[in-house]
Simulated scan of single mutants.
Amino acid sequence: MHQNENQRTAVVTGASSGIGRAVARRLQADGFHVLAVARRGDRLEALAAETGVSTLVVDVSDGASVDRLAERAAELFPQGVSALINVAGGALGVDWVERADFEKWTGMYASNVLGAGRVTKALLPQIRTAGGGDIVFLTSTAAQVAYEGGSGYNAAKAAEHMLAAALRLELAGEPIRVIEVAPGLVHTDEFSLTRLGGDQAAADAVYEGVEKPLTAQDVADVIAYSIELPAHVNLDLITMRPVAQAAAHKLMRRPLEVKRTP
């Protein structure tokens, strides 16, 4: 697919599933030419067949892989990149500090912080080529409030929040918006499953009894809204939660039905 000179363009990381996939689909539907990237090529192929997005297998934690991303984006988008949506990341484990697996912490920092920083650094020249644009960081309410078993993920997302905040200051005076979207409880197929080591029952329990948790599409809609606003409007930080989650520590669940035998 060749870029229309007036068509907006977007690079979406973490696009093989969940929020990243939903963002890629939404922006493509809105008329963007999307380059969707992730580690799983088969998932990207399915997304391309469904939506028409361009794809590339990329590991954001690997510098050479991100260099290839920058090269491919320049080929696809000679007029520059209008929007970068940093979604790749996620959580690994729920260990307390005294039982911490620091290899998992390293993995979370590599994807959520270094990955987002590496991709942003690589594509920033192409955003300038476009005459300005948007850089979105998907963080989490975990960046704002700590909780037991969340220390590694809390720390990684808090670091990504600071990355976004510092970048916004560094780019002041340029026509580039830096937007942070921090969701609370989002029900996707893989986030909790991956975090809990593939334990489906434990992953299901995270959402048990919660009336309408956020969906990946909900988050994608907010991201799309934030980058489709007039260029002088910047939504620095958007915290979004389901109504059932009044605060990080206040999640309402329906009472479980008790099945009685006659």
Rank of each mutant, 00 (worst) to 15 (best):
Q3E: 14
N6A: 08
Q7F: 01
R8Q: 09
R8S: 05
T9M: 13
T9I: 03
A10K: 07
G14I: 11
S17P: 02
S17I: 14
G18H: 12
G18Q: 09
I19T: 08
I19L: 09
G20T: 12
G20C: 10
G20D: 04
A22Y: 04
V23C: 14
A24D: 01
R26M: 12
L27N: 02
Q28D: 13
L35Y: 07
L35H: 08
V37I: 03
D42Q: 13
R43M: 13
L47S: 04
A48H: 08
A48Y: 08
A49F: 04
A49R: 04
E50K: 03
T51V: 09
G52H: 10
S54H: 12
S54N: 12
T55Q: 07
L56I: 00
L56W: 00
S61D: 07
S61T: 06
A64T: 01
S65M: 07
S65F: 04
S65C: 06
R68T: 03
R68M: 07
L69Q: 06
A70L: 14
E71K: 09
R72L: 09
A74I: 00
Q79V: 11
G80N: 11
A83F: 14
G89P: 00
G90E: 03
L92F: 11
G93K: 12
D95T: 01
W96D: 05
V97L: 05
F102A: 11
F102V: 08
E103P: 05
K104C: 06
M108G: 14
Y109V: 01
S111V: 05
N112Q: 09
V113Y: 14
V113C: 13
L114D: 06
A116Y: 11
A116W: 11
V119D: 02
K121G: 04
K121W: 02
A122F: 00
L123E: 02
L124W: 05
P125K: 15
Q126R: 15
R128L: 11
G131T: 05
A142R: 04
A142D: 11
V145M: 15
N154V: 00
K157P: 09
A159M: 07
L163F: 12
A165K: 14
A165W: 12
L169S: 15
L169D: 14
L169T: 10
E170R: 02
E170M: 05
G173D: 05
E174T: 02
I179A: 15
V181D: 12
V181M: 13
L185P: 00
H187E: 12
F191G: 01
T194F: 05
R195K: 10
L196I: 01
Q200T: 15
Q200G: 06
A201M: 08
A201C: 02
A203H: 07
A205S: 04
A205H: 03
Y207R: 03
G209Q: 06
K212D: 11
K212G: 07
P213S: 13
P213Q: 14
P213E: 13
P213K: 15
A216G: 02
Q217P: 00
Q217I: 03
V219G: 01
V219H: 04
A220N: 05
D221A: 10
I223N: 08
A224N: 04
I227L: 14
E228C: 12
H232I: 09
L237R: 15
P242C: 13
V243Y: 15
V243G: 15
A244T: 01
A244Q: 01
Q245F: 06
H249P: 06
K250H: 06
L256N: 03
E257V: 12
V258Y: 03
V258P: 01
K259M: 13
